[in-house]
Design a binder for these strands. Sequence first.
DNA 1: TCTGGGGTCCTAGGACCC
DNA 2: TCTGGGGTCCTAGGACCC
Length: 420
Amino acid sequence: MIALIDCNNFYCSCERVFNPGLLGRALIVLSNNDGCAISRSEEAKELGIQMAQPAFMIDELIKKEEVNVFSSNYTLYDDMSRRVMQVIKELVPRAEVYSVDEIFADLSGMKYKDLEELGSEIKDMVGRCTGIPVTVGIAPTKTLAKMANRYAKKNRPGEGVFSADTKELVEMLLSATKIGDVWGIGKQFEALLSGKGFVTALDLVNRAPEEWIRKEMSVVGQRLFHELKGINCIPWEETTKVRKNICTSRSFGKLITRKNEVAQSIAKFTSSCGEKLRKEKTCARRVHVFLQTNPHRPQDPQYFQSITLELEMATNLTTLLLKHAMKALDMIFREGYNYQKAGVMMLDLIPQKEVQLGLFETLTYEKDQKLMEKVDELNKVFGKDVVRFGVQDYGQNWKLKQGNLSGAYTTRLHQVIKAS
DNA sequence: TCTGGGGTCCTAGGACCC
DNA sequence: TCTGGGGTCCTAGGACCC
């Protein structure tokens, strides 16, 4: 049996831990640039605020209903996530972190325990240790565990636990779940399946021919089909996966037109990618740069462009990455547009220790490597970007809007040092 | 009128997830 | 005025090989 443990309205719950006055009140957390609502408390959901709804569309509602609004504080959420996961890992034999607010737990070694009881224990322990409310779904496969979790949220809000551990319960779960609410079925597949008359997950399991699924939905659909029938097809990820791509991109706080300002942003994104690469001990073989105008402004001429440059050798040194990113920008930048967003991606990542040095690279490479080590050390102690490359500049005309940011409650060491 | 039978590697784009 | 930012996997099709 597999459990999926999911934090309820995670970002909102994090804010509440450090501001208990928010308990029982409508509360939302906004995306970067204070753009859209990306986490909503139950009270906010009841007011009709939708997932990913643009903030400016609900200004009046927010005022009228006194909704508490927060800018996203990812440093806080990441740290709280780490704590929640730690507590759970200590309670189960094997666990796999699936996202910032979800973790799968393998309960196969615990067959003599009442699983629903175990779920309650996990939920209570996480609550006591971190203050974060969670929901636990238990079932024979990952896909069914996701479904059980969803069912618990909807139908067992008090207990926060649901275990589908008999054939009858699994069948009940399947029949209670609409096809579009199955993990792995998005808009396209939902349209395809409901068009064929499959309304619930049980319809699919009972009536869909496997060959048809294979043909229309590829092996992805076939796997899903088996998972619903209780046959495990999604492998257990033993260790945290090494990422294959790394991306840093942002919308600007306001539209920008000047090349040097776009260049500053690209430099900053590149430097951030470099940091992420070095942290994961991987190197990129290709650098991808993109920029775009605001598609929501039909009055503006539109421009979407991107380019991928190959590196002579894989690297994670910001010095080398910057050279390529700047060259890429030169190649795609056009005057006369209002740019709204840009980004940098690192592609084809390989482990740092597998990098082949080019014949003539060795000297500067070692020098740059030492430089980046020191930069990372300093920034870790004194705060993000305290030491940075000149191209990143200080202007930041384009920087994020963060009107309602909460404190660095759990990670403020460097701020204390800076202040002193 | 008739035009082989294997392969590999790469990329773009589509589907999905949080 | 104001609309997020990350990721994954799979497939089809093109370019190339013998």
